[in-house]
Design a protein around this nucleic acid. Structure first.
Lengths: 333, 333
DNA sequence: ATGAAAGCGCTAACAA
DNA sequence: TTGTTAGCGCTTTCAT
C-alpha cells in the first residue's frame, strides 16, 4: 500500500494527449483547443490528479512560497502582522513558511538560510534591529526582502512602517500639554533603532517644544512583558514621573496594574499613553490611551509590496510609511 | 545579473569528486573518507554552496516541511499552540507552512489540498469541528495528520487534547460548591463537539452531582470575541445566574468588564471561571480564576507525535490527553 | 494546437 | 570508499 501518486503522465495517457498539453491546461495556457481542454479536465477530475508543487518548483524555479521570519508568533503584535501577511499571500496564491527567531541574531541567520535553501520566492522579516550580518545575507541573495515593522538603516530592501518619530512626539506632546513636566519614556532596548533613534528623538523633540528638560533618569528600558511592567512600577514612582509614554501594550498594562495596585490613581495622579492599540488596551481599567498603528495593514502592505518585487514590477517606492493616530481613552486626562 | 546558483555539480568539479560524494557529505553519510569529506566541506564553504531543498524534495520525496492549518494566528489561543509546534518542528529540522482557515469548512479543504500539493510530510490541524469532508480528505491522503486541540470523532488520525469533560465538571463543581445554584454555561458553538459534547456533559454532570437542575436558559452560545462578552452581560444578568463557566478568555474578560461596568461586584455578586489561562486572565481586575490547559505543550506534543508518525515509528497511543488544572484567582470566592 | 525532449538539482540504487 | 546512472514530476523551448 505505497503512496501511488498520479502524475501528469497518467493524465496524459488517459486523455490521449501529451504531457505538455496537460501541463498547458493545468497552467491555464490559452493554446489548447476547448475540446481538448475539456477532455483533459475530465480525466484530471476522474483521477483526482493534483500537480506536484515540488516538481513544479524545481522546473520553474518558483515555489509560490514566501518565508516569514518573526520574533514570536504568540506575541499579539507580531501575530497581527502575520495575519495581514497571510491574508494577502493567500490572495496572491502564495503560502508562507513561518519561522520564529526569538529575536536572536544567530537564529535569524540560520532561519534565513534555511528559507533560502527552500527556495522561497521572497522573505518578509520582522525583527527589532537589523544586524550587519543579516543585512549581508539580504544583499548576497537575490531574493526580494521586505521588512515589516522594522527600520532598514539604508533602504536596501523594502520596508513598511509608520512614522515612529512623529508618533512618539505627538504622544509625548499630549502628555506635556496636560501639564506633566516629568514624563517617563519607557521602551524596549534602545539599541533597536525604532526605540533608540526614532522614538527617543520624537520624545526629545516634544520635550523641547514644551520647554521641558531631557532627563535620563526618566528613560527606562524593559522587556516587552507584563511582569516587567509590574516590576517597573516602583522605579517609575520613585523617578518622580507623573506620566509615561510606553512603546508596548503588554508592558503598559503591567505598569498600569502595578501602579494601581500601589494605590496610584490613573489618570488623576499618573497618565499613561501606550503604543500598539491591541485588545489589551481595552481590557484594563481604565482603558489605555494609545498610539494606533495599523498592524494588520503593515503586514498586508508588506506582502503586497513583496508580490510586486517578486513579480519584478516597477515599485515606485519601496519604503512605505503608513498613517498612525492616537486614540484617547481613560488613562489620560 | 541572473541568479547564478551553485549546484552540487560545481562543488563536485572543484573538489575533484563525483556529485554522489558531495551528496554524501552533505547528508552526513559515514561512507566518506575523512580527507575527502574535509576537502568537499572546504569547497562547499568556499563556494558558499547551499543545497536546493526543492530538488532534494523531489528526489527524496520528503520536504521536511509540515503544514499547519490554524483558524486564526492572531488569536492568542492558537498562536500559543503554533509556537509550541514551531519550536518542536525546529528541533526536528522541519519547517512549517502556516495557513489560516478562519474556521471555514471550505477554506480548510482548500488549504489542505494546497498543502498536500506542496508535498508536506505531515499536517497539524487546529479547528473547532472536524467536518465529514475534511475527514474524507484526511483518510484519502496517506499523509500523517495530528489534531491539536480538536476532537477526532473516531480516532483515525492523531490528536492531542486535555480532558475537556473533566475540566468542565471540575470548574462547574467549584462554582456549585461556592453556593451558586444558577450557573451559566457560556461557550462557542455547541456544534463544536468540545463544547456541545465534552464540556456540556461535564457541566451537566457537575450540576447533577450537586443536585442542581439543568436549565437551557442558562446556556449561552457566543463568538470568542471581547465585544461578544460585553454584549452578553445584560442577558446573563437577566437570566438570574450568579456565576458562569466560560470556555474562552476573551469572552470571559468581555463579560467581566461588561458586568463590572453595570455595577455588579465580582466575585461577591457574580463568580466567573474561564478556561484558557492566557495572559488576559491576569490583566483584568479581578484576575480570573481559570481552567489551565498547557497550550504550548499541546502544540509541542502534537508536533512530536507527528514526527513519530512521519518517521513511521510505532506509536503506542496516538490519542493523547494532557493534564489540566484549575488556578483560583480573584473572580471566585 | 500539440508533441518531443531536454533539463531543473538532487537522491539512491547499483557497480566498481 | 567512490563513481555512474536513473529517475523524481514538472516546465519549457523547439518543432511540427
Amino acid at each position: 500500500m505505497e503512496k501511488q501518486t498520479i502524475t501528469i503522465y497518467d493524465v496524459a495517457r488517459e486523455a490521449n494527449v501529451s504531457m505538455a498539453t496537460v501541463s498547458r491546461v493545468v497552467n491555464g495556457n490559452p493554446n489548447v483547443k476547448p475540446a481538448t481542454r475539456k477532455k483533459v479536465l475530465e480525466v484530471i477530475d476522474r483521477l483526482d490528479y493534483r500537480p506536484n508543487a515540488v516538481a513544479r518548483g524545481l522546473a520553474s524555479k518558483k515555489t509560490t512560497t514566501v518565508g516569514v521570519i518573526i520574533p514570536d508568533v504568540s506575541n499579539i503584535f507580531f501575530s497581527s502582522l502575520a495575519r495581514g501577511i497571510d491574508d494577502v499571500a493567500t490572495m496572491y496564491k502564495y503560502n508562507i513558511i513561518l519561522a520564529n527567531s526569538d529575536g536572536s541574531d544567530d537564529k535569524e541567520i540560520n532561519v534565513l538560510n534555511n528559507l533560502l535553501a527552500k527556495q522561497v520566492d521572497g522573505v518578509i522579516f520582522m525583527g527589532h534591529h537589523i544586524t550587519e550580518a543579516i543585512r549581508g545575507e539580504f544583499s548576497r541573495s537575490k531574493t526580494p526582502v521586505v521588512l515589516a515593522g522594522s527600520i532598514d538603516p539604508d533602504n536596501q530592501v523594502g520596508s513598511v512602517n509608520i512614522d515612529y518619530q512623529a508618533a512618539a512626539k505627538e504622544a509625548t506632546n499630549l502628555l506635556a500639554e496636560n501639564g506633566n513636566t516629568k514624563i517617563a519614556f519607557i521602551s524596549g532596548s534602545l539599541l533597536d533603532p525604532i526605540n533608540g533613534k526614532e522614538r527617543l528623538t520624537g520624545y526629545k523633540e516634544a520635550l523641547s517644544t514644551n520647554k521641558l528638560d531631557y532627563n535620563e533618569g526618566l528613560v527606562f528600558e524593559a522587556e516587552y512583558q507584563y511582569k516587567m511592567g509590574e516590576n517597573l512600577a516602583e522605579r517609575v514612582m520613585n523617578s518622580g514621573a507623573t506620566a509615561a509614554y510606553i512603546v508596548d501594550d503588554e508592558l503598559a498594562i503591567g505598569l498600569t496594574n502595578g501602579l494601581l495596585d500601589r494605590g496610584i490613581k490613573i489618570p488623576e495622579e499618573f497618565e499613561i499613553i501606550t503604543t500598539n492599540n491591541t485588545l489589551l488596551t481595552e481590557v484594563v481599567r481604565p482603558k489605555l490611551t494609545s498610539v494606533t498603528q495599523p498592524l494588520y495593514d503593515i503586514g498586508a502592505v508588506s506582502m503586497r509590496l513583496l508580490t510586486k518585487m517578486m513579480n519584478k514590477e516597477d515599485v515606485e517606492e519601496k519604503t512605505i510609511v503608513l498613517p498612525h493616530g492616537i486614540v484617547e481613552r481613560g488613562s489620560t486626562k
